[in-house]
Design a protein around this nucleic acid. Structure first.
Lengths: 242, 242
DNA sequence: CGGAACATTGATAGAGCTCAAGGAACGTGG
DNA sequence: CCACGTTCCTTGAGCTCTATCAATGTTCCG
C-alpha cells in the first residue's frame, strides 16, 4: 500500500523540481518501501550505521544531537521533502538522531543502493549533494543565530524560519502553522533554557507578534517579527526531491 | 608553476584516500590552476556566485557569516584538504564567506566543470558529497557545543577540535600547534565576547591546560582538557581529497 | 477523580556582556 | 635608533541577560 512516485503528493506542490516521467520511474526503482510511524518513534540514531535512508513524505520530526551528560540540541526540524540518513549513506555513521514528532510517513531507500544511484544517475547524485549543501547552509545559519543573537532575536528568527518552511509546503492556514513541538524542543533548538524560552515567548506575545497554543503557531505580524532579526528570511527556490 | 596532482603534498600524508594513477590523472584534468594569496584575502563572498571552487593546499583560513548589523560568526576554520565553494557549485550561491588568514595556496576548479565531474566520475561525485556531509557534521557539532555548553566548555571543545585537525595534517610540533588567528576570531567562533574569551583563556592557562601566545597554541594536558568536554573528540578516518 | 505531561510565574544567583583603560608587540618614518 | 601609530591582548568594574530553583496552573487522559 505504498504511494506511487508518479503520484507523489509532494511533487504537486510546485516547490520541487519537475522530473520527467522517466526520471520519476528511475527513482521509483530505488524506493524500497514506505514507513508509517507513530509520534515519538526514533528513525535514525546518532552513531548508528543505518541500513536505510528516508524521504519524509508527511508529518514533522526533529534532528537532535545529545551530549554525554544528556544535554540535547535540536539541530533542525524535519519537514516533508527532507532527505534523512545521508550521513550514514556516505560516511557510514549518523552524526545526529532523527525522531518523529507527529505521525509520519516516509519513503524508504536502501543505503546500499546509494552507490548505484550515483553510478546510474549523475542528476540524482547532484540532487543529493544539493540536499547536503542545503543542510550545511541551514546549520550555518542556525550556528550564526545561536552564536550571535540574543534570546529574543533567536526566538524571532527560529519561529520565522519555521513558518517559512511550513508556508513553502502549504502546511499553513493563513498565518497560522502547525506546531506539534513542546517548548522544551524549541528551547533545545535555540540554546535557551525552558524557562527562559517561555518568558521570551511571553514577550513576543505581549507585543502581538506571536501566538502559540494547542499545537498551533500564529504570526500575526510578520513585519514586526522580521524587524527583530534584521530582515525576513529569503524565499527559497525550487529544490530537488529524492 | 603549479603543483602536479600526482605530486600533491597532501596525498603523502596518509590521511587521504589513496587514488590510482588514473584517478589522479582524471582529477588533474579538472584542476584549472593554482592560486596563492596573502593573509586577509577574501576567497569567496557570502551571496556571491563564485565561478571557482578551491581545494586548500597550504595555509589556514576562516569560513564566516555576517549578520545585517555586522556581528560575525566564524563557521569553521579552513585547513589544507578542505573543499571550498561547493555551495556556489550546487546551489548557485555561497551562504558564507571564506578568507585566508595566513598566506595560502589553493587548487582552483571551474565551477562549470562540476557537472562534468558528476557525469564522468561517480566516485568523485561521491567524494564531493562526502565533503558536504562532513561539513554538515561539523556544523552540527559546533551548533550543539555553542547551544549547550558553557563558555569554558566551548573553549576547551574548540581548542581540542582545532588541535585534532592540526594533528591529522601533521601541522603540529608535539603538543604545540600553529594558531595564526586573533582572539577575536576565536570569540566569533565560539559565540563569546572578546573580553570573555580572553578571561576564559586565562582560566585554562591557570589550570595549565592551555598556552596561547605569539601565534602558537599548546595543549600540555589533553586529558585535562578532554575532562571539560566529556571526552576526547573522535579520531577521524581517512577521507577523500578532491 | 487522580495522575502525567506540559506551561507559566516569581525569586535569586551567576555567567557573560559592555565599557573603559592600559599594556605589549610590531612596523614605519624621521 | 627612537618616537609614534596601529593592532591586538589584558584587566577591572558594573550591569544585563539567562539559568536555576521552586511552586503553581493547565490540559488531557485513563
Amino acid at each position: 500500500m505504498t504511494t506511487d512516485c508518479a503520484a507523489c503528493p509532494l511533487r504537486r506542490l510546485g516547490v520541487f523540481d519537475d522530473l520527467s516521467r522517466d526520471e520519476v520511474a528511475f527513482l521509483q526503482r530505488f524506493k524500497h518501501g514506505e514507513l508509517r510511524v507513530e509520534p515519538g518513534t526514533p528513525l535514525l540514531m546518532e552513531g548508528s550505521n543505518s541500513p536505510q535512508m528516508y524521504t519524509a513524505l508527511h508529518g514533522l520530526g526533529l534532528r537532535t544531537k545529545t551530549l554525554a551528560d544528556g544535554r540535547r540540541q535540536v539541530v533542525n526540524f524535519v519537514f516533508p521533502g527532507d532527505f534523512l540518513g545521508l550521513q550514514a549513506g556516505v560516511m557510514g555513521k549518523m552524526r545526529h538522531s532523527v525522531e518523529a514528532t507527529t505521525q509520519m510517513t516516509l519513503c524508504v531507500f536502501d543505503r546500499s543502493e546509494i552507490w548505484n544511484l550515483f553510478r546510474q544517475s549523475p542528476e540524482r547524485a547532484f540532487d543529493i549533494t544539493w540536499h547536503a549543501a542545503m543542510e550545511e547552509h541551514f546549520l550555518g545559519e542556525a550556528l550564526t543565530s545561536i552564536g550571535q543573537m540574543s534570546g529574543l532575536e533567536r526566538m524571532a528568527w527560529g519561529l520565522q524560519r519555521y513558518a517559512r518552511r511550513c508556508s513553502m509546503l502549504a502546511l499553513n492556514d493563513g498565518r497560522s502553522y502547525p506546531f506539534p513541538f513542546r517548548q522544551q524542543d524549541l528551547a533545545d533548538a535555540l540554546g535557551l533554557s525552558l524557562v527562559h524560552t517561555n518568558k521570551t515567548l511571553q514577550k513576543l506575545r505581549e507585543r502581538q507578534l506571536v501566538a502559540l497554543r494547542s499545537g498551533r503557531l500564529s504570526l500575526p505580524d510578520p513585519e514586526g517579527l522580521a524587524a527583530l532579526t534584521g530582515g525576513a528570511p529569503e524565499t527559497e527556490r525550487r529544490r530537488p526531491l529524492i
